[in-house]
């Protein structure tokens, strides 16, 4: 009986854990105008250090990630966006760099211009969000012309020798 109880507890814990322990990305838990960060005490480093040095961490992390393949979350830009992005009434994230949003307000005050968000996603967006690619025109069928143009080029090059 004791064994059985233990097993039951273990099984229940395992089944229940995805809902209780993980950082679920459900935006509907977050009220309008709020971000995950609004419910937390501290940033990834002490907040006053972040205020002064967040760009140093980011610059460091980007070389670590791109050159060395280190993908830790702590100083990752993707993670900043995930935690700091605010949500609108529908529970959808508002781009972090849009007017009045987290990565924009201070920079306006200090006349800082960052280009990061011309490439980096301004809201958490993973490949599962189907709507992004609904207007994906980069499908193979459209690119057949491109292939044909290269035909000639490769005829020559690939058959030498």
């Amino acid at each position: 009986m004791y064994q059985f109880t233990i097993r039951l507890v273990v099984i229940i814990t395992i089944i229940a854990s995805p809902n209780t322990f993980s950082h679920s990305d459900n935006p509907h838990n977050i009220p309008e105008g709020k971000s995950k960060a609004d419910f937390l005490e501290q940033c990834v480093e002490a907040t006053d250090i972040m205020r002064k040095k967040h760009f140093n961490f980011l610059y460091h992390q980007r070389d670590k990630t791109v050159i060395k393949g280190i993908r830790t979350k702590k100083h990752s830009l993707a993670n900043c966006v995930d935690c700091h992005v605010a949500h609108n009434q529908q529970g959808e994230p508002i781009p972090v760099n849009s007017e009045g949003q987290f990565c924009q307000v201070c920079h306006i005050k200090t006349a800082t211009n960052i280009d990061c968000f011309s490439c980096h996603a301004t809201v958490p967006r993973d490949r599962m969000s189907k709507n992004i690619l609904k207007d994906n025109l980069n499908k193979a069928s459209d690119l057949q012309n491109k292939t044909d143009k290269l035909l000639y080029y490769y005829q020559i090059t690939l058959n030498e020798k």
Binding site: R125, R127, I132, L133, D135, N136, L137, N138, D142, L143, Q144, N145, K146
Partner: peptide, 13 residues
């Protein structure tokens, strides 16, 4: 997330 602009000559691939 590669999406194009219906310009096969220059769209990323």
């Amino acid at each position: 997330g590669l999406y194009g602009f219906d310009r096969p000559e220059t769209d990323s691939q």
